[in-house]
Amino acid sequence: MKPPRILSIAGSDSSGGAGIQADIKTITMLGGFAMTAITAVTAQNTLGVTMVEALSPEMVGAQIDACVSDVGVDAVKIGMLGSPQIAAVVAERLELLDVPVVFDPVMIATSGSVLADAATIAGFERLMKLAALTTPNVPELQALGGPEGMAARGIAYLAKGGDAEGPTVEDVLVVPGAEPQVWSAPRIITRHTHGTGCTLSSAIATGLGAGLDLVAAIEQGRRFVRAALEAAPGFGSGSGPLGHQAVQSSS
C-alpha cells in the first residue's frame, strides 16, 4: 500500500522544532509521504523568533501546484501563512481540491513571538470554512471569536487545552450538529513544548489522508504528541523541541 500524500503549507523553523520541519518528521513517523509549500522562512530557536521573511504568494502557489499536478495529495495541513496575500492564494488552490484540510491558525509561537498580523488573521476565515478541522489553542480560539463565534459560523474545530491552567489537559472537538467530544489526560510537566500545535495538526492530517475518520485521526494525533513530549531530547534553554524521531509504533 502506498503512503498517504500529505502536503504541509507552513513556515520553516530554522531550529527544527516547529513548522515545516516538525510536520515532515511527524508525517514521516506516522507513515505518510511529506510534501511542502513553504510560506515563510524564520530565524528562530527555543528562545524565540528573531526574523521572519515571507515568500511571495506566487511562489507559495507554485509549490502547491507542483505537488498537486504530479505527485497528488491525499490531505493538507496549513500552518503559518505569513501574509494575507498568501492566505488568499492558499484558499484559492485548496478550494479546487477535494481532500481533507487541517488548519492550525498559527498566530503566536510557543515562545510568545507573534507570527500573524491582524490582516492575516482576517484572511483565516476562508480557510476555516473549507477545512475539515481547525485546531486553535486557548488564545487563538478567543481571537477567532470564541466558541460562540465559531458556532455561529458553523466551523468544526478542536479546542486545544495545552495553554490552559491545571493538572489536566482537555481537548474538545466541536462539530456543527454533533455533541462535543472531550479528551482528558494528565498534563505532562515539561518546558519542551516547541512545535506541539504543528505536530498535532500534521498528525491529524496524516490520519485523515490515510482514511481514518476525524475522531480516530485526532486520537492518533494526541497519542503521537504525548509520546513525543515524553521523548523530548532536552535541547535548548527555552521551549525545547519534541522527540518526534523517538516515537515508535505507540501512535
Results as ranks from 00 to 15, higher is better:
L127I: 03
D213A: 09
S201Q: 06
P139Y: 12
T199A: 08
T190M: 05
A185V: 14
T120W: 12
G145Q: 05
G145A: 06
L141S: 10
A122K: 12
V169D: 09
L173N: 00
G145N: 05
A159P: 01
R191N: 14
L212E: 15
E148S: 09
L212S: 15
D171E: 04
A116E: 00
P147C: 05
P186T: 10
P180S: 10
P136F: 04
H194W: 05
E125T: 14
M150I: 01
E165S: 11
R187C: 10
R187F: 14
A156C: 10
L200C: 07
V182G: 09
G162L: 04
E125G: 13
R226M: 09
L144C: 06
T190L: 09
G154C: 04
E165L: 08
T206N: 13
V169H: 06
T199F: 07
A143E: 07
E165N: 06
P176W: 11
K160E: 01
A185K: 08
Y157H: 15
E165W: 07
R126E: 12
A178M: 11
I204H: 00
T196S: 10
R222E: 12
A151L: 12
G162V: 05
T190V: 11
R153N: 06
A151H: 13
G177I: 04
V215S: 12
A156H: 01
A151K: 13
I189F: 07
A203H: 03
G149N: 11
E219D: 15
A122S: 14
Q142R: 12
M128N: 09
P186S: 07
V215E: 13
A178R: 15
G221A: 11
I189M: 13
L130Y: 00
